[in-house]
Design a protein around this nucleic acid. Structure first.
Lengths: 74, 74
DNA sequence: TAAAAAATTATCGTAAAACGATAAATAATT
DNA sequence: AATTATTTATCGTTTTACGATAATTTTTTA
């Protein structure tokens, strides 16, 4: 697996915390945290949509394809 | 919903057809077609990974957030 | 440095959706 | 016209999101 979810960057840029974002996009903080820390194996486009809307950004700002390096699993 | 899957463009750029890509990423042509035509409601990161690998591109080349216009559903 | 707030992690249950297999229909090529 | 590629549909299984919740850990703040 080499798709990385990079929510941190945009969240910092928008100065928004996990709680606030979670509330904005109608997801529990617990689940947003999972997403934010690359523990999710899939994402609903509707959720991606909400995030992009809330952070005013593009999917590409959040999802990154990175060539596999050693030391990853999944 | 305002997340658009834009596989066509990169596929054209790489001169690869649906069948060939489907085989490369180990998905049935039927399911790839669904993805390609915005009928999917979610995507596994592993699938996105395969696509990016096969097309040598970034998620941002494939997923686009577009402000809602009238005449969409979902 | 203690209290409070934020974030992470975990578990359980339900609902949603991917995806395979398959077949049929439609569109595009040759 | 025949072949190939693509789309659409259905059914079944498996995966996974996500809610609810609670406990834990980390970070912030007073």
């Amino acid at each position: 697996m080499a798709i990385i979810v990079q929510l941190d960057v945009m969240m910092a840029k928008r100065k928004i915390g996990l709680m606030e974002l979670a509330e904005k996009i109608n997801i529990t903080p617990a689940n947003l945290s999972i997403l934010k820390n690359n523990k999710a194996k899939a994402i609903r486009l509707s959720t991606l949509d909400e995030i992009c809307k809330a952070l005013d950004c593009q999917p590409g700002d959040i999802l990154e394809y990175k060539e596999d390096e050693d030391g990853e699993e999944n």
